[in-house]
Amino acid sequence: MIVDFDVAFGDHVLKGDQYVGDGVNRVLYLHGAGTGSRRGHHLLRNALQQRGIGSTSFDCIGHGDTGGTLAQSSVASRTRQAQAVAAARALPEPLAVFGASMGAYNAIRFTQSHHVDALVLIVPGVFTPTAYEVPFGPEFSAVIRRERSWADSDAWDILSRFEGRLLVIAAENDATIPREIPERLVAAATRAQSSRLHVVQGAEHNRLWSLLAEDPPSFDAAVDMVADTLNGGRQ
């Protein structure tokens, strides 16, 4: 069962859905930037639901069914939008937070305000703190396009305090995210209960789960890895 919902956020209405699991539904799934939306993550969410694991996701401002313009948002606003959804939907803690691309940085930031015991970061992007509150647009692009602007991200420091389970899934042929980022994220999580980097061979930034789906055993193995990060498939 999939349940649609609306959450008021300022002058906007965030459109989302919950893939209902068999028990407690504690997964919050955050999509990426560009043309990303929650619907682009159906393959993984559906596979988890079939294993009894529910998830909640929504379209950030400027994306998907929520609409609006990107200039009305920022990376920081995306974090606040996620916090609003978690509160409105009364998601139980400890949370398991998934983040894809830009959403990975929002997921990492989420650990500062909520009890999170599992992080799944997929083709993860991270950002310099100076870009956090800058509205999306030319000024934001100028900040993040500086060479290695991500190197001074606070993501490393935040993850150094994370004590839950961390899974980072990277694409072998990711032309957007340098391999150093997922490697450094795992290395930073020195206090994590567990940390693992899984590189999907042949995958690209925007073609990871769809590629895995072409080989069901590989797809199932990757989904099992995600479920294990959620503590052996606990909902």
Rank of each mutant, 00 (worst) to 15 (best):
I144K: 10
A8N: 15
A221C: 00
L166T: 02
R179L: 07
V200R: 02
Q50W: 03
A87S: 09
F162N: 07
D59A: 12
F219V: 09
A171G: 01
C60I: 04
G36H: 06
L197Y: 13
R26S: 15
A151D: 13
S194G: 14
D228H: 07
L119F: 06
D117W: 00
F110T: 04
A188T: 14
E214W: 11
S77W: 01
R78F: 15
P124T: 08
D117N: 07
A87P: 01
S149Y: 06
R45V: 10
F162K: 11
R51S: 09
G99H: 06
G40Q: 12
Y132V: 00
A175F: 13
L43S: 07
V3I: 12
R196N: 01
A87R: 10
R161F: 11
E147W: 08
S153G: 12
A188Y: 09
P178V: 04
T56K: 03
S194I: 01
G32F: 04
R165Y: 00
A222V: 10
I53D: 06
I181D: 09
D65V: 05
S113G: 05
R161S: 14
E183N: 09
V85A: 10
G23S: 14
R179C: 01
G202K: 01
F162I: 11
A142Q: 15
G10S: 07
E214Q: 11
A203T: 12
S194D: 04
V97R: 04
A33V: 06
A170E: 08
S57K: 03
D154G: 05
E204D: 04
A8G: 13
T128M: 14
S37W: 15
F98S: 10
G10W: 09
Q235K: 02
A213V: 00
A170F: 06
K15I: 06
L119M: 08
D224H: 07
E163Q: 13
V75S: 00
G36T: 08
A203N: 08
R234F: 13
Y19I: 10
G68Y: 09
S153N: 11
F140P: 15
P124S: 14
L230A: 05
V123Y: 10
V75W: 00
L70P: 03
V143M: 10
A100E: 14
D6A: 10
Q201A: 15
P92L: 05
A189T: 13
D4A: 08
E93Y: 01
R191I: 02
Y132E: 14
T66Y: 11
Q49W: 05
P217K: 08
V199D: 02
S74N: 15
D154M: 04
D228F: 00
S101R: 08
A227V: 04
D152L: 03
S149A: 15
A189D: 04
A104E: 06
A90R: 15
S141G: 07
A142P: 05
F136C: 15
S37I: 08
G21N: 14
V24R: 11
E147C: 02
I144D: 13
A171N: 02
D154C: 03
R39I: 07
I177L: 02
D174Q: 12
V13T: 11
V226N: 03
Y29M: 13
D6P: 00
S210G: 02
W209Y: 12
I122Y: 15
L44R: 13
T56A: 02
D228A: 15
E163A: 04
T190Q: 10
G68K: 10
